[in-house]
Write a protein that binds this DNA or RNA. Structure first.
Lengths: 111, 111
DNA sequence: AGAAAACATTACTCCTCAGTAATTCGTATG
DNA sequence: CATACGAATTACTGAGGAGTAATGTTTTCT
């Protein structure tokens, strides 16, 4: 065996949780919501609706998923709910993927 | 407006392609396949089957998806097909997510 | 208390995708 | 040429998730 052995990308026991986490990010609506949350640090649901144009029930559900996944934080103030990103690694992940997609755009690697 | 404005996580035009790419990685079988491809640089389909225990049609389909997505490269040699990872950014993404999941494991952030 | 605002939740439909068995295609071997 | 092997493709079933309308819940205001 002359080939170099590399460590795995993901420890075997973490394959499923990692897949679950990636799945949580792998949605256009959730990415758009995270986008506006990143631009303005904290937003009420209504503000997110205005900024994204999605419907209330839809956004509320996605926010619930993001919150349960620990990606987003919820702060209740009176009748409103304010959300903000609480997972700093999200940024790095999105940067990497976005960069890769941009590069691939230039080449001919589109489905 | 006293708050600092951060750039978006993902440029608006890239939200959908980025989501699609994350979706491609957000699957336990595909992550496991990428895992063994990372450990041994290049593997035939049969070798991947032996190493992962998944079924032929299943793995072949996932390999097709990964190849069409430009994450994996296919090399035909005789009757066999050899696959290898051709997207270097995959490693960084998996590292980030795995690290985050590990950290969250220690805390109480599980669904 | 009654009404309205801001979110969350539910129930439902639809569509995508994962897994499997069976078939097909291409290449080597006797 | 017939056969066997390795892999891709097809057809099919089932489960999960997205979007929506409608309803529920909590808080505020009068």
């Amino acid at each position: 065996m002359y080939v170099v052995m590399h460590p795995p990308l993901v420890p075997d026991a973490l394959v499923e949780p990692v897949a679950a986490r990636l799945k949580l990010l792998a949605d256009p609506v959730r990415l758009a919501v995270l986008n506006v949350l990143r631009i303005h640090q904290e937003l009420s649901v209504q503000e997110i609706l205005d900024l994204t144009g999605y419907r209330q029930a839809n956004v509320s559900k996605h926010l619930g998923l993001l919150a349960r996944g620990g990606i987003v934080r919820r702060r209740k103030e009176g009748v409103k709910a304010f959300y903000s990103i609480c997972d700093p690694t999200v940024q790095g992940i999105c940067l990497l993927v976005a960069k890769q997609v941009e590069d691939a755009q230039g080449a001919g690697v589109l489905g």
